[in-house]
Simulated scan of single mutants.
Amino acid sequence: MVVRGHQDVRPVGVCPDGPHVLRVSAADPDSCLATAGTLAAVIRSGESPAVADIAHTLRQGRDDRAYRLATVGTSPGELAAGLEGVGEHTVEGWHKPGSETLLMMPGQGSDLLPTARALYGWETVFTSALDRLWTSARTIAPSLPDLSTALAPTAADDAAADLALAHCLHTAVLLALTEQLTARGLRVDRLVGYSLGEYAAAAAADVISEEDALRLVLGRVGILRDAPAGAMIAVRLPSDAVAKLVPEDLATCAVTLGTGRSVMSLAAAALERVTSLLADAGVPHRVLEPALPYHSSLLAGAASAFAPIADAVPVRPGSARLVTTAAGRDSLGAGYWSAHLAGPPT
């Protein structure tokens, strides 16, 4: 295998200091490991190109074969060790023909602030992206704080009380993380978002613009300020068991998280009664932070008010990368985001 320098045509933001992903492939394991060993020897020789250039060449200049090995590291020695199979961050295996990489974007229940603080100012791609996105957000909503304030350790308390700050920052961080992963070599075939995360997924899939994703999120917050108070409860029960235990007039199953795990939405007035029923039945449960009954008919009025705002956002045609989650809707269009707000995701 010959590795040589290349004309630097990388986009601005590629970090030469690492960490870097080196990925090699071949038709079978023996050939792949032989290639990896040869590359490790080149790196150890001290006469190889910079590891940033090697990573770029492997990422852009070769077609992937059926058997693959990848390692992550910063120094030449660390990367060479990984290629030789003794690195801490090395994986290898067969690629399944026809398989795709699905990037899943979480909803507001995932606290992304610690991740954002750790990456901001350290990873150039993430930092540049978040700066750009937050500038756009503050253009739409000038009352938002500056980014340093939004990322400060005290921001968690502010975000809990300020939906605009929490939801907008969540969306911006997801989009910046996607850019960072792409710059590190992740090839995303399809994207899906859970609840609030779907706005970022739609923008990352290029179905709507980043600015429109932020505008939608902020418009949604404006509607939700006048929505009826409610609650969501995570329950360690499947949805059918939830329906048997809790009367439908008290709560409905809004989200199925997996086998044996569900989330219920309910009105604020029903919270004490429902938690009592769950406690009496010995069912593990947790009241979630948002004091709103997302993905339920209790937000039907808010969804109707949101529809004109959401339907005004242009949808870019031709992208099949976004996996939609609003029940019964396989593409973004009129009524999608209002159905997404007041209906259960699939």
Rank of each mutant, 00 (worst) to 15 (best):
M1H: 07
P16V: 10
G18P: 09
V21W: 04
A26S: 12
D28W: 03
S31D: 12
S31Y: 01
C32P: 02
A36Q: 04
A40V: 14
I54S: 06
R59N: 10
R62H: 13
R65N: 06
R68Q: 15
G82R: 03
H89F: 11
T90D: 05
T90W: 03
T90V: 15
P97A: 14
L103A: 14
L103F: 13
M104Q: 10
D111H: 03
L112D: 02
L113I: 10
Y120C: 03
W122P: 00
E123F: 02
E123N: 12
R132L: 10
S136P: 00
A137Q: 06
S143Y: 04
S143M: 05
P145E: 04
D146I: 06
T149E: 12
T149F: 00
L151D: 06
T154D: 12
A161K: 15
L163Q: 14
L165R: 05
H170Q: 14
T171H: 04
E179K: 07
R184N: 12
G185E: 01
V188C: 11
L191Q: 07
A204C: 08
E210R: 11
E210P: 03
E211K: 10
D212H: 13
L214K: 04
L216M: 13
L218C: 10
L224C: 07
R225D: 15
R225L: 11
D226L: 09
G230D: 04
I233F: 00
A241T: 12
A243W: 00
K244I: 07
E248W: 00
E248I: 13
L250V: 09
A254L: 10
G258N: 12
V263S: 05
S265P: 09
L278T: 07
D280F: 01
V287G: 08
A291M: 11
Y294P: 07
L299G: 03
A303E: 01
F306G: 03
V315A: 03
R316A: 11
S319F: 05
T325A: 10
R329K: 13
L332P: 05
A342M: 01
P344K: 06
